[in-house]
Design a protein around this nucleic acid. Structure first.
Lengths: 243, 243
DNA sequence: GAGTGGTCTAGACCACTCA
DNA sequence: GAGTGGTCTAGACCACTCA
């Protein structure tokens, strides 16, 4: 048996939701782990199953947990790969979807420029790591990315050969640095491409490109990564439901 | 007392959700109307309040209903104006948000081109109405729109002076034609602007523009309107959460 | 003060999973 | 067959709204 400590003005299911979210943020359960069953939680916190379900429902709706009937409730491993496909229709000539290759151009310790420090909620000139890379499909560059990471959490990245890892960074962050990306906020705009990115993307200067800024956070809501990507406008397509 | 008719393999709350959605689609309740109270629904369908709540919860999550504690549950009037602001940061020099003016360039009965017929789920060459207009802020054109409507439902639009109405079309659809937009699907891309739209938007040919395609549907899910809008890339900004 | 949605209880029975 | 989440009941009490 256990007591819910947070603000007693909140409802019981809200307080249980907060407690569970906090335990996930503290790595008490890792992505892929099962959390206690609904029966166990209702015994532990002396709540009815309906109230426990409401707390778990909230975290399921937030994308933090997922239920599997007959098996249990699990901490969700975010599927950023599919989110990438939502934004870009990267396809081979045969029309197949595939993860674009990654070519790392540079990775180096630098001091955070103002905009980066602000996005990562760090003091001005804080130590960060900057990665520049290009994503390719069929040897064709389709996306140019600048990535910024707080150096305190990601120092281990500087000691490995990033080029020898797979094209997806988030599994590397987890394996090498123990940092798990829980969710992200993205902002989309478009612009005329400048000379530097025109060369990287092999398109004419001033052709239209889509600009995606992404701030990734951990389960506790702390900023983990800020990136700005530029991509071919013709390859870009984003869909949304509006109500 | 009343019986739920739809597929008995579905759960009770799903079937009640479907029944309520169907009644809203049939205009049994209009936007702004209250639906019966939870107690009334639970008597009418012989269901416990928990089950009724689950059905109503589903429609609230879909954005079709909204609850107001102490007052009742209401059919939601979609707030497309705010969705517009999600996509474009239209601001006056003073930084205030405002609805852009509308200047109608043409409204005429035509036969649907293939792409339009397909989007509106009409046969090829079906009769439609095409509206071309420009949206302006501080007398500056910021958005050029082509709008297509099925003529059978919107014939009354041809008999009024659209230029004398307000800048928002959806209230006009409702008032003049009795057609209510329930939700919409939007797709975003970017491109280099062609000569025609460069002139409309008063930007240089080949400068980057954002292209938004929107298919609006009624509560029954039938297509009501298809539009394609082109806007200044510098004025465009879209945000999304990714999990 | 009557009526509304919001939270919560203490279960029962079911469908699904897995050894 | 034991354990899990999914659905459902029949309420109780509360906070809020409005005449």
């Amino acid at each position: 048996m256990n007591a819910l400590s947070s603000d007693a003005r909140l409802s019981l299911y809200q307080r249980l939701r907060d407690r569970l979210a906090q335990q996930i943020a503290n790595n008490q359960w890792r992505p892929g782990d099962a959390i206690p069953t609904e029966a166990a939680l209702s015994t532990e916190y002396q709540l009815s199953t309906g109230t426990v379900r409401k707390a778990v429902d909230a975290l399921v709706n937030e994308g933090i947990l997922e239920r599997k009937q007959g098996r249990g409730t699990f901490v969700r491993r975010p599927q950023f790969q599919s989110s990438l496909f939502r934004f870009f229709r990267f396809q081979t000539a045969a029309g197949e979807r595939q993860v674009p290759e990654s070519r790392i151009l540079s990775i180096e310790p630098v001091l955070a420029p103002t905009a980066v420090a602000q996005a990562l909620e760090l003091p001005a000139d804080a130590p960060v790591i900057r990665i520049v890379r290009v994503r390719l499909l069929d040897a064709q560059p389709i996306l140019a990315e600048q990535i910024w990471l707080p150096r305190a959490r990601f120092r281990a990245l500087l000691d490995i050969n990033l080029g020898q890892e797979g094209p997806l960074l988030y599994p590397i962050y987890e394996k090498v640095c123990g940092q798990v990306v829980a969710y992200a906020e993205e902002t989309l705009t478009a612009e005329s491409v400048d000379e530097v990115h025109a060369r990287l993307l092999q398109v004419p200067v001033n052709s239209p490109v889509v600009v995606i800024e992404r701030l990734a956070r951990d389960y506790a809501g702390a900023p983990l990564e800020w990136r700005r990507s530029r991509g071919h406008a013709e390859l870009f397509r984003y869909s949304a439901d509006v109500r």
